[in-house]
């Protein structure tokens, strides 16, 4: 159980202007700008949930993750994770926490991956039997058997990320923070990582918090997303709800045989093209293809079409999550 309420954090950033005169001046009297990294952050995440934490760069994502990891002490507000305050009971807290920083390695560069894992076992005081079991399972699920004896520096990015994730899970943490886990990976590795995280969450009930810019990650993994911008929570809800609110008009493509007059359509639907042509609204016998734009549910249009024609195929394209997020950003002005 993760609970944050009214977390605030601001930083002082020294203001620097160019020139020797200013440099000397700032030596004696520095001017600071206060930057509000976290203005008022509150949310709750239940055990076993998988949440996408998204927002533009500088929105406060990593500050929030740092607060939850016990690395950063907030100015005010409460944060309780599994009954502990992260920055007060650091050691107890982090022993139940796994963190993958996408850009920085948790592995030792010059020794085989297996040696790094063994050191982590000691650092986290993992029981040898449990360690063995975890390692076997991780090796199988992430396909690591070929990699364990390879020094980290010789691994490809995708191979390394698989090892990094395993390293974060050696001590069976209850909570896993994934910071940009698929950044820079090839398509195959991305899918492998996503599948693994989904399995982990399903089978072990590990709570997963995912910060990412990759909308496919979100789409593949999380139902719930929390959007942060300028240090505030802008939105906290189900991915499907968000779709409804933020996706614009969708396209519906229908293929049918027979004649049809498509002048009268249900509300919210409009005909874009018929057989590839604009302005056409009626066709005689033969196979045809019509593209519509719809607001809201497509069911009325579909029943109209199926009543009038012999439908052979129908497809509804949803707006990509990228577009949704762009829309959300636009609406909130972040």
């Amino acid at each position: 159980m993760i609970r944050l309420s009214h977390i605030k954090k601001s930083f002082r950033v020294s203001r620097r202007a160019g020139g020797i005169k200013n440099a000397v001046g700032s030596f004696f009297r520095r001017q600071y700008d206060t930057v509000e990294a976290l203005a008022d952050i509150s949310f709750e995440i239940g055990d076993g949930e998988m949440v996408g934490y998204i927002g533009p760069n500088g929105a406060g994502k990593s500050s929030t993750v740092k607060v939850m990891s016990g690395i950063l002490t907030p100015d005010s507000g409460e944060c309780v994770i599994n009954g502990r305050v992260p920055w007060k009971q650091r050691k107890e807290h982090v022993s139940e926490l796994g963190v993958v920083f996408g850009q920085r390695s948790a592995l030792w560069w010059d020794v085989p991956v297996a040696d790094s894992f063994e050191l982590l076992q000691a650092i986290y005081s993992v029981d040898p039997i449990e360690y063995r079991r975890n390692l076997d399972r991780l090796t199988e699920m992430l396909d690591l058997s070929q990699l364990l004896q390879t020094p980290t520096r010789q691994l490809s990015l995708g191979q390394r990320m698989r090892c990094e994730i395993a390293a974060a899970l050696i001590h069976s943490p209850k909570i896993l923070f994934l910071d940009e886990p698929t950044i820079g990976l090839d398509a195959v590795s991305k899918i492998a990582v996503r599948d693994f995280v989904a399995d982990l969450n399903r089978e072990r009930g590990t709570t997963v918090i995912l910060t990412t810019h990759d909308m496919q990650d979100i789409e593949a993994l999380t139902k719930r997303i929390i959007l942060i911008g300028r240090g505030r929570i802008l939105l906290d809800g189900q991915l499907s709800d968000l779709r409804h609110r933020f996706e614009g008009r969708r396209r519906l493509t229908a293929e049918f045989t027979g004649s049809a007059d498509l002048t009268a359509l249900p509300e919210g639907a409009s005909l874009l093209t018929l057989d590839g042509r604009e302005g056409l609204s009626a066709v005689s016998d033969g196979s045809h293809r019509a593209v519509f734009a719809i607001d809201g549910s497509p069911s009325a249009l579909i029943s109209l079409l199926s009543g009038k024609t012999e439908l052979t195929d129908i497809a509804v394209e949803s707006t990509s999550i990228d577009e949704i997020v762009v829309n959300m950003y636009r609406e909130y002005g972040v």
Binding site: S69, G70, K91, S95, V99, F101
Partner: peptide, 13 residues
């Protein structure tokens, strides 16, 4: 400088 200290802080030692 390279953020290694963050890594240290998320380990229980």
């Amino acid at each position: 400088g390279n953020g290694e200290f963050d890594r240290i802080l998320v380990r229980p030692r």
